[in-house]
Protein backbone atom coordinates (compact mmCIF):
# COMPACT_ATOMS: atom_id res chain seq x y z
CA UNK A 1 0.00 0.00 0.00
CA UNK A 2 1.25 3.51 -0.84
CA UNK A 3 -0.77 5.56 1.65
CA UNK A 4 1.58 7.95 3.44
CA UNK A 5 -0.79 8.85 6.29
CA UNK A 6 -1.61 5.23 7.01
CA UNK A 7 2.08 4.34 7.17
CA UNK A 8 2.93 7.22 9.54
CA UNK A 9 -0.02 6.42 11.81
CA UNK A 10 0.89 2.74 11.87
CA UNK A 11 4.50 3.57 12.71
CA UNK A 12 3.28 5.56 15.72
CA UNK A 13 0.56 3.21 16.98
CA UNK A 14 1.75 -0.34 16.23
CA UNK A 15 4.70 -0.48 18.71
CA UNK A 16 2.35 0.50 21.51
CA UNK A 17 -0.15 -2.18 20.47
CA UNK A 18 2.59 -4.81 20.48
CA UNK A 19 3.87 -3.75 23.92
CA UNK A 20 0.29 -3.66 25.22
CA UNK A 21 -0.17 -7.24 24.04
CA UNK A 22 2.87 -8.35 26.01
CA UNK A 23 1.53 -6.39 29.00
CA UNK A 24 -1.76 -8.29 28.80
CA UNK A 25 0.10 -11.62 28.56
CA UNK A 26 2.40 -10.92 31.50
CA UNK A 27 -0.35 -9.47 33.74
CA UNK A 28 -2.83 -12.25 32.95
CA UNK A 29 -2.86 -13.41 36.55
CA UNK A 30 -3.41 -10.06 38.28
CA UNK A 31 -5.72 -8.18 35.90
CA UNK A 32 -8.43 -8.98 33.36
CA UNK A 33 -7.21 -10.49 30.14
CA UNK A 34 -4.87 -13.40 29.89
CA UNK A 35 -2.53 -15.30 27.67
CA UNK A 36 -5.01 -16.04 24.87
CA UNK A 37 -6.23 -12.43 24.56
CA UNK A 38 -2.71 -11.02 24.82
CA UNK A 39 -1.37 -13.42 22.23
CA UNK A 40 -4.11 -12.35 19.84
CA UNK A 41 -3.18 -8.67 20.36
CA UNK A 42 0.54 -9.31 19.70
CA UNK A 43 -0.28 -11.38 16.62
CA UNK A 44 -2.68 -8.76 15.27
CA UNK A 45 -0.11 -5.97 15.63
CA UNK A 46 2.31 -7.96 13.47
CA UNK A 47 -0.47 -8.81 11.00
CA UNK A 48 -1.39 -5.12 10.72
CA UNK A 49 2.27 -4.27 10.14
CA UNK A 50 2.61 -6.70 7.27
CA UNK A 51 -0.74 -5.64 5.83
CA UNK A 52 0.30 -1.99 5.71
CA UNK A 53 3.99 -2.27 4.79
CA UNK A 54 3.77 -5.38 2.61
CA UNK A 55 4.34 -9.06 3.21
CA UNK A 56 8.07 -8.92 2.38
CA UNK A 57 8.80 -6.38 5.14
CA UNK A 58 6.72 -8.33 7.62
CA UNK A 59 8.66 -11.44 6.70
CA UNK A 60 11.89 -9.55 7.32
CA UNK A 61 10.70 -8.65 10.82
CA UNK A 62 9.67 -12.22 11.61
CA UNK A 63 11.72 -14.79 9.70
CA UNK A 64 10.27 -18.20 9.14
CA UNK A 65 12.90 -19.70 11.42
CA UNK A 66 11.58 -17.76 14.43
CA UNK A 67 7.99 -18.70 13.64
CA UNK A 68 8.83 -22.39 13.27
CA UNK A 69 10.77 -22.25 16.53
CA UNK A 70 7.98 -20.64 18.59
CA UNK A 71 5.39 -22.79 16.87
CA UNK A 72 7.19 -25.98 17.82
CA UNK A 73 8.46 -25.18 21.29
CA UNK A 74 5.45 -23.36 22.75
CA UNK A 75 3.63 -26.54 23.63
CA UNK A 76 6.86 -28.23 24.71
CA UNK A 77 7.45 -25.37 27.13
CA UNK A 78 4.02 -26.04 28.60
CA UNK A 79 4.87 -29.72 29.05
CA UNK A 80 8.23 -28.81 30.55
CA UNK A 81 6.50 -26.65 33.17
CA UNK A 82 4.22 -29.61 33.86
CA UNK A 83 7.23 -31.82 34.44
CA UNK A 84 8.17 -29.69 37.50
CA UNK A 85 5.39 -31.52 39.34
CA UNK A 86 6.67 -34.93 38.30
CA UNK A 87 10.24 -34.06 39.36
CA UNK A 88 8.94 -33.09 42.81
CA UNK A 89 6.94 -36.33 43.09
CA UNK A 90 3.40 -34.95 42.67
CA UNK A 91 1.00 -35.15 39.70
CA UNK A 92 1.68 -33.62 36.28
CA UNK A 93 1.08 -29.84 36.02
CA UNK A 94 0.78 -29.45 39.80
CA UNK A 95 1.41 -25.94 41.08
CA UNK A 96 0.72 -25.56 44.79
CA UNK A 97 1.20 -29.28 45.43
CA UNK A 98 4.70 -29.07 43.94
CA UNK A 99 5.75 -26.64 46.64
CA UNK A 100 6.21 -23.68 44.30
CA UNK A 101 6.27 -20.38 46.14
CA UNK A 102 2.93 -18.73 45.28
CA UNK A 103 4.05 -15.27 46.35
CA UNK A 104 1.94 -12.32 47.37
CA UNK A 105 -1.44 -12.21 45.54
CA UNK A 106 -1.66 -9.13 43.35
CA UNK A 107 2.03 -8.78 42.60
CA UNK A 108 3.58 -9.69 39.26
CA UNK A 109 5.58 -12.59 40.72
CA UNK A 110 2.55 -14.31 42.25
CA UNK A 111 0.99 -17.50 40.99
CA UNK A 112 4.07 -19.69 40.78
CA UNK A 113 4.13 -21.53 37.47
CA UNK A 114 0.95 -19.87 36.15
CA UNK A 115 2.69 -16.77 34.79
CA UNK A 116 5.39 -18.87 33.09
CA UNK A 117 2.80 -21.16 31.49
CA UNK A 118 0.75 -18.13 30.45
CA UNK A 119 3.75 -16.55 28.74
CA UNK A 120 4.29 -19.75 26.74
CA UNK A 121 0.63 -19.91 25.71
CA UNK A 122 0.63 -16.24 24.69
CA UNK A 123 3.69 -16.62 22.45
CA UNK A 124 2.11 -19.76 21.02
CA UNK A 125 -1.17 -18.03 20.11
CA UNK A 126 0.66 -15.05 18.55
CA UNK A 127 2.84 -17.28 16.40
CA UNK A 128 -0.20 -19.32 15.32
CA UNK A 129 -2.01 -16.17 14.14
CA UNK A 130 1.02 -14.85 12.27
CA UNK A 131 1.86 -18.19 10.68
CA UNK A 132 -1.69 -18.70 9.43
CA UNK A 133 -1.74 -15.16 8.02
CA UNK A 134 1.60 -15.48 6.22
CA UNK A 135 0.77 -18.91 4.84
CA UNK A 136 -2.58 -17.76 3.47
CA UNK A 137 -1.26 -14.46 2.08
CA UNK A 138 1.68 -15.97 0.27
CA UNK A 139 -0.56 -18.35 -1.67
Amino acid sequence: MKDFILKRMAAIILPFICVYGFYVILHGHVSPGGSFAGGIIVGLSLIAYSTIYGIAKGRAKLPEKVLVWTESYGTLWYGLMGMVGIVKGVPFLANKLAGVNLGNPGTLSSGGLISLIGFGVGIRVASTMVTLFFTMMEE
Binding site: H29, G34, N95, K96, L102, P105, G112, V121
Partner: peptide, 15 residues
Protein backbone atom coordinates in the same frame (compact mmCIF):
# COMPACT_ATOMS: atom_id res chain seq x y z
CA UNK B 1 -5.65 -19.98 48.42
CA UNK B 2 -4.97 -22.75 45.91
CA UNK B 3 -3.27 -20.73 43.20
CA UNK B 4 -2.34 -17.30 44.57
CA UNK B 5 -3.85 -15.64 41.50
CA UNK B 6 -6.35 -12.77 41.59
CA UNK B 7 -7.88 -13.42 38.16
CA UNK B 8 -10.13 -16.41 38.75
CA UNK B 9 -10.49 -17.19 35.04
CA UNK B 10 -6.72 -17.57 34.77
CA UNK B 11 -6.73 -19.71 37.90
CA UNK B 12 -9.25 -22.08 36.34
CA UNK B 13 -7.76 -22.09 32.83
CA UNK B 14 -4.09 -22.45 33.77
CA UNK B 15 -4.26 -24.32 37.07
Amino acid sequence: DDTGVLNMVTAIVLD
